[in-house]
Nucleic acid binder design. Structure first.
Lengths: 163, 163
DNA sequence: TATAATTAGTTATATTTGTAAACTATTTGT
DNA sequence: ACAAATAGTTTACAAATATAACTAATTATA
């Protein structure tokens, strides 16, 4: 077994930093300069509420408020109160948001293509499969709850004595 | 070709968030609560200067100063001025730092083992190879220079009129 | 060899993000 | 009806990120 010099989590973090740098550059013509992944998520997930986005993109719900304020101000999204549960706000892309999401998707596709250059189809499949497994496996391990509000509603009993 | 719903860079970012949550939890007995990857890097790279760490872990040199201040204060490292180039500071682990790096490495190994559960050796190899390729490929693409000082010393001319 | 440019690291500042807690409004459970 | 839970917001603070200006030392060059 090889000696781990840089933890896998660090390697993936480094890659994501590089990736976001390239994506931001590639989309510098847009009038927003971050949260592209949120736009893409909304593009493929209609009628989802804030907690939904938080759970899927691993972001804190308090941070999400600011993200959505930013995107609302830029005219990409709007909040719609769910009439069936008025606590929830559905987040929807505006016409502009939908239009821009196509551009974002185009950039992402281009970057993905260039990133996976020299990687075979089979290797790509395995890479994605393993990345998925890693995330699933690691989710099961004890963690500082850090930055999200993932349903841990099963053990209600411990809630009370959380200082 | 499959539709990309979540960019690879986002998926890896999510994984690294999960990973760091688990690592932080697992090392909560230590008297530091972050920058474990820097310690590990120093453990396997002797006599490296700050810029060196920055380039390898993709961190900004100004941020690195604070990181190293934190680790110095905690007694994990010290800075040693390179006598052959007195601008450079070699960063070395202290005895304590070396001792603690073993604990960190142990935690990392355990987490890696659990993360790669159900993933074959061959798949693991491919995963690492692809991740490496992705990072290399993406490094070649135009990017907002974001958070690091990777040699872009080729275009000296534009330096002056940078407001 | 003087001086200009570059480099390593530091300091300072502003912005953004992460974390936690308290809070409102609403819904659910009893 | 009342307690508990949930979605989202606000606030406050710590940490991370981005920039730029700065010092000191080194390298290039004219």
């Amino acid at each position: 077994m090889s000696v781990i010099e840089i933890p896998t989590g660090t390697k993936t973090l480094i890659f994501s930093k590089l990736y976001y740098g390239v994506l931001t550059k590639s989309l510098s013509k847009l009038d927003i300069d971050r949260y592209f992944a949120v736009i893409l998520f909304l593009n493929s997930n209609k009628k989802c509420c804030q907690q939904n986005i938080c759970n899927n993109l691993m972001m804190d719900k308090a941070a999400m408020v600011k993200v959505l304020d930013y995107l609302t101000k830029a005219g990409y999204i709007h909040r719609i109160t769910n009439p069936l549960d008025r606590r929830e706000h559905f987040i929807e892309l505006t016409i502009k948001g939908i239009k821009k999401s196509k551009e974002i998707l185009k950039s992402v596709h281009e970057i993905e293509q260039k990133a996976f250059l020299g990687v075979t189809k089979k290797e790509t499949l395995i890479f994605n499969k393993v990345l998925h497994s890693l995330s699933n496996n690691i989710k099961e391990l004890p963690s500082t709850n850090l930055f999200f509000n993932y349903k841990n509603t099963k053990n209600k009993s411990t809630k009370k004595n959380s200082k």
